[in-house]
């Protein structure tokens, strides 16, 4: 049963920040996570701040410098309908495709997905691969934070009570890139990943040589992880069978999965290894 609360529909960011300062207030974006938590009694906000009518928060903009700004209340369906994102950030598009269900995607927002803090969130590994920066604002100012510094634990982020995530900025994407996002589960919809992996590779001018590479995994630790040690193996190199093996083993060492309803830690170790090999092989085939 949902407990009583005050409902406030914000018309501006100032209003959002004003209300956020009040105690036991929570942001209502899509509500697909929040309402479930309110029904189970897991959370009991006194004030809900509906941000959906705040202008700018639901926009996807290509900035003059080539970066892309995504407002926090952009929904997963908005992501799938954006030609810009499909073309420039296909890895985010791929993550959005496998998230939830159509009904959920029509409401769930990228900001909500990030702030909910699930290690299995489908937007986070792609955003980590893209090197996304988060704009956190409060009444006195703002700060930019790389997304990989945002999550602290399952359902725990470093967002302060008076702060609000209002924008996700993706740096300009280099040309000559390859991306993949694999979500391993038991069925093809309504699925929370057993293990997920995002891969983004930028190639140098020299054929097949990797200039920069990012590997990010979900559901393998208390937060989504970027496997920097594994990335270093392939930086400046061409993909070979041996390097794929070495990278996959290194990824395996960099994670710390638990056993839960969806799978055992042992299986997650194996799948992290397997999925790393697969995305790298896909990249290799692409070259």
């Amino acid at each position: 049963m949902i407990m009583d609360f005050e409902y406030f529909r914000a018309k501006s960011l100032q209003e959002v920040l004003l209300m956020k300062g009040k105690s036991r207030s929570e942001i209502l974006a899509g509500g697909t996570d929040l309402l479930v938590r309110m029904k189970t009694g897991e959370t009991n906000p006194k004030i809900l701040i509906d941000i959906k009518k705040v202008p700018d928060l639901n926009r996807i903009i290509l900035n003059p410098d080539g970066s892309i700004s995504i407002g926090a209340s952009v929904t997963f369906s908005d992501i799938l309908e954006s030609d810009l994102l499909k073309q420039e950030c296909p890895i985010l598009y791929k993550g959005a495709q496998v998230m939830g269900t159509t009904q959920i995607r029509n409401r769930a927002t990228i900001g909500g997905n990030i702030c909910h803090g699930s290690p299995a969130a489908d937007s986070v590994p792609p955003l980590m691969c893209l090197g996304a920066q988060l704009l956190l604002i409060n009444r006195n100012g703002e700060r930019w934070l790389p997304i990989e510094n945002f999550h602290e634990g399952p359902r725990k982020t470093c967002l302060k009570p008076e702060e609000f995530l209002c924008e996700i900025k993706i740096p300009p994407i280099q040309p000559r890139s390859f991306c993949a996002y694999l979500k391993h589960g038991v069925r093809k919809s309504l699925e929370i990943a057993i293990v997920s992996i995002g891969l983004l590779v930028f190639f140098s001018d020299e054929e097949g040589v990797i200039d920069n590479i990012r590997i990010s995994l979900g559901s393998v630790s208390h937060i989504p992880v970027r496997s920097k040690e594994a990335e270093d193996i392939l930086k400046g190199k061409k993909i070979t069978k041996d390097l794929i093996e070495k990278t996959a083993l290194t990824v395996q060492k960099s994670i710390n999965p638990i056993s839960d309803l969806r799978g055992s830690a042992e299986y997650r170790y194996e799948m992290a290894y397997m999925l790393t090999k697969r995305v790298l092989q896909e990249c290799c085939n692409h070259v």
């Binding site: 409902y7 529909r9 209502l28 899509g30 509500g31 697909t32 309402l35 479930v36 029904k39 809900l48 509906d50 959906k52 369906s77 269900t101 159509t102 009904q103 959920i104 029509n106 409401r107 309504l190």
Partner: peptide, 29 residues
Amino acid sequence: CDTGECGACTVILDGKAVNACLILAVDAD
């Protein structure tokens, strides 16, 4: 299910299919 997982409560809200159980009535204003 009342938790947005079964789809039995699907309605079309402003042209999009959504789970009515995950939308507050006040949000539909």
